[in-house]
Design a protein around this nucleic acid. Structure first.
Length: 330
DNA sequence: TAGGCCATCTGGTCCT
DNA sequence: AGGACCAGATGGCCTA
């Protein structure tokens, strides 16, 4: 169906800034799209005349019951009524744009609190939602387990159901070898590596890392290709690059806010972030020597450096919730 | 060039 | 009546 606007030519030139739209209070996000909008509206303006004609033809085709309309002179809206309809439609369009911008702002806020954030390589909407769901799931499992989590299993849970590019991005953010988190055709994350410490930290339960909506999708119908690997001083093989200063090819170097300002994942940080000020959640270090412990950590790295990350899952997570809620209530 | 992603317009439905 | 919400349609942009 060809959807064409009602706007009159003079409105089409500034489709976003009709008489009823407060320019002064225009959000920044709207301002940035003005240029883009103009190009679209120019195209629509050329089609406006045809729009009116086609609309009238549509109205004449069927009645309220979907049946062909009775013959006779079609009731035509008066010019005043027609103008009012157009104005209302235009106002509705403006409101709808604002609503969608609010939705996008909220989504952007969500992007900033999931464990993989990059201004230059933004996650798509659907991938943001998937990653957020996985993140919540992984954190919930960590909480319910009541014991130190498995790093790789945690990351694998994060990557479940994500596209390969997103998986690469997440792995890049975490400075892990993306090849260890290959996603198979069923959307399951396949781990190609093998930890010699698998038996050292056996994970309780068999399905604790399967997010809702991802169960039963494996080929064998029950067994998950998702294996639980523990982390120890021998984790170096899982890094794409031993240098903490280099990321994956898809990673632009900007860490997600959990690393940048929330401190969930703390890579590339020699100094521990100030958790008392702004951070929450989980972080882990990129090298055994980088203990980077917060004094209020729930989980701590063992003296042998077997567990190079720790968790902050109590008060800091509530802080995080507050931040998220705040973002969504802007 | 095809496909993915996105913004926008639009009409329908529901609610106040 | 009017606003919020939703989903379909459409076209633009970008990338492989």
């Amino acid at each position: 169906m060809l959807t064409l606007p009602f706007e009159e030519p003079h409105m089409m030139r500034e489709p976003r800034f009709g008489a009823n739209y407060p320019r002064e209070s225009l959000p920044e996000s709207l301002e940035k799209e003005r240029q883009h909008d103009r190009s679209n509206s120019d195209m629509r303006e050329a089609e406006d005349d045809m729009s009116d004609r086609e609309e009238e033809e549509r109205e004449s085709e069927q009645d309220d019951n979907g049946l062909p309309k009775k013959r006779g002179p079609r009731k035509k809206k008066s010019g005043k009524e027609f103008d009012r309809t157009k104005v209302r439609r235009h106002e509705a369009n403006t409101r709808e744009r604002c609503r969608m911008h609010g939705l996008n702002d909220a989504l952007e806020s969500l992007r900033k609190v999931v464990p993989c954030y990059s201004k230059t390589q933004k996650l798509s909407k659907i991938e943001t939602l998937r990653l957020a769901k996985n993140y919540i799931w992984a954190l919930s499992e960590t909480l319910s387990a009541g014991k130190r989590p498995d790093l790789l299993a945690f990351v694998q849970t994060l990557c479940k159901g994500l596209s390969q590019p997103t998986t690469n991005l997440v792995a890049g953010c975490l400075q892990l070898n993306a090849r260890n988190f290959l996603t198979d055709h069923n959307g399951e994350v396949m781990f190609s590596g093998r930890s010699p410490y698998d038996a050292m930290y056996p994970y309780p339960g068999s399905d604790v890392n399967t997010p809702p909506g991802h169960s039963g999708s494996s080929v064998d119908g029950g067994a998950k290709p998702f294996r639980h690997y523990s982390y120890s001083g021998a984790y170096e093989p899982y890094y794409e690059n031993p240098s903490p200063e280099s990321g994956s090819p898809h990673f632009d170097g900007q860490m997600s806010p959990p690393m940048n300002f929330n401190g969930i994942f703390s890579l590339k940080h020699d100094d521990p972030p100030d958790y008392g000020k702004s951070s929450y959640g989980m972080r882990y270090c990129s090298a055994p020597g980088r203990t980077a412990l917060a004094h209020n950590s729930m989980y701590r790295v063992s003296p042998e450096g077997r567990f190079p990350y720790d968790l902050h899952v109590r008060s800091q997570s509530f802080q995080a919730q507050g931040e998220v809620n705040g973002s969504f209530h802007n």
